[in-house]
Design a protein around this nucleic acid. Structure first.
Lengths: 265, 265
DNA sequence: CAGTGGTCTAGACCACACT
DNA sequence: GTGTGGTCTAGACCACTGC
């Protein structure tokens, strides 16, 4: 952490409270919301990277010229959104997929028996990894245009030797320059952790559409089931900061002996 | 709202701050957590019912002999858990399933096309409604004992005349005395709203296990699909306040033209 | 010990709803 | 206007971490 306090140029925004004139409709926004936006911007630009400690609440308060309590409220909300992690006595850190506790946070497939998590990390087998042009469908999901360069990865995940998940993954080519079959094969650990470490892309949020489908010939072969067997189809769009889509994937899950767990509230 | 301030007997707990003695390990718990527990208790006992306004923050502060800010923090957390709803200028209200915005909050089946919600309310057809003894499985899910009285409801939900969901629902008999086929048939609107209004049971949280299965003969007939067609199996345990299980249900969803939507974060 | 986040308070003022 | 929740501040003190 720098010991020198931030210069005032760190505060491009004028003090919103000075806009005390009774003008028209200034679209009131609470200070802490604005602070939240500023912190988000620093996350997005990579000023603070996943795993890093961000400046202390008092430092940020000085930098943004607000009280510590206001910074606190902003951080509170970012922490409940899982963008930041607070650790008492140590500091506040940028959340990451590279920690034991938050690993596989987006993988909801669990064994039916036993309350424990997913029987250790899965074995990965890459079926395909190639660069190509986005189809209309892929482009739409990734918020790009048909023909944009994209990277397709197809892989099978197995638990204790038994194939369980077949995934087709599309990534925007620009953000993942240099991602190759070797990069993926050499890596152990969650794919999203690799994305953070190598490409500075942190997945923050995802939306899934789930259906029951019958296995087609390809899926049946790769998942070692008979054609037509019911599989869970899980379509996911994953987003980085500020709701920018960065991945589209379709998974086919075998759910004999396993289930997709979801919590409603 | 009562105009008389609460007597001190409303505060059975001694002021936790007076425990200043350097005793062993007092299991430190923040004041606002304790307030949260007290509020939860009033929700559980029905002192404040779904839809009711709870006392203002200042009233509660006086009642619990803490500052308004501390009550606020307690309410904040209960509000983010969807147990309470804040409405600026009006008050804080006990959350309910009987409002347009929170209706069908636990029903995640949406049409594939169109971003709008579930094509209007579903048509309900009750197939079965009978009292019986809990099987070992049902008893385990409801936290009771084999042989306990339970109520089973079996029904089909249709959208625009097309059957989409087949549900088997088990409820603890004690809490739902007087629930009959007529009660269910006469009611329009969400089942969980009926539970609140008639039995004072508010569903707060639920856990679902999702699988892909093939339709059996019964399901095929009731959902108008061919036997073996892939269906989404959604097993749910729903809880009231304080994680008391109050419902176990298994749904079979047709997912041709619809999907189960889930958000990860 | 110093530095960090966590709790609690008290008071001022703003925004919104109702009457 | 009155009463509600919503924001912001300033300061005191507690709890945890690591030197």
């Amino acid at each position: 952490m720098p010991t020198t306090p931030s210069p005032t140029s760190d505060l491009p925004e004028p003090d919103p409270r000075s806009a005390g004139s009774d003008s028209e409709a200034p679209a009131f926004s609470p200070l802490y919301q604005q602070i939240k936006t500023l912190i988000l911007r620093s996350l997005q630009t990579g000023e603070w990277k996943p795993g890093d400690a961000i400046p202390s609440e008092f430092e940020l308060a000085a930098r943004y010229r607000v009280s510590q309590g206001t910074v606190r409220k902003a951080i509170d909300e970012l922490a409940t959104d899982n963008l930041l992690v607070r650790r008492q006595g140590k500091g506040t850190f940028v959340a990451t997929h590279a920690e034991a506790l938050t690993q596989y946070r987006f993988l909801r497939l669990l064994p039916d028996t036993g309350d424990l998590d997913g029987q250790g990390p899965a074995e990965r087998r890459i079926i395909e990894c190639r660069r190509q042009r986005a189809s209309a469908e892929v482009a739409r999901q990734l918020g790009g245009r048909t023909g944009d360069p994209v990277l397709q990865v197809k892989r099978v995940l197995s638990f204790s030797g038994a194939p369980a998940i077949l995934e087709d993954i599309w990534l925007p080519g620009g953000a993942f320059k240099g991602l190759t079959l070797e990069t993926l094969s050499d890596d152990t650990g969650p794919m999203y952790a690799l994305f953070e470490a190598r490409f500075g892309v942190r997945m923050v949020r995802a939306v899934e559409k789930i259906k029951a489908v019958g296995a087609d010939a390809d899926a049946a072969r790769l998942l070692a089931v008979s054609e037509g067997q019911p599989l869970l189809s899980v379509e996911r769009v994953a987003y980085t900061y500020n709701d920018v889509p960065m991945e589209w994937r379709r998974g086919l899950y075998r759910t004999d002996g396993r289930h997709y767990r979801n919590e409603l509230s």
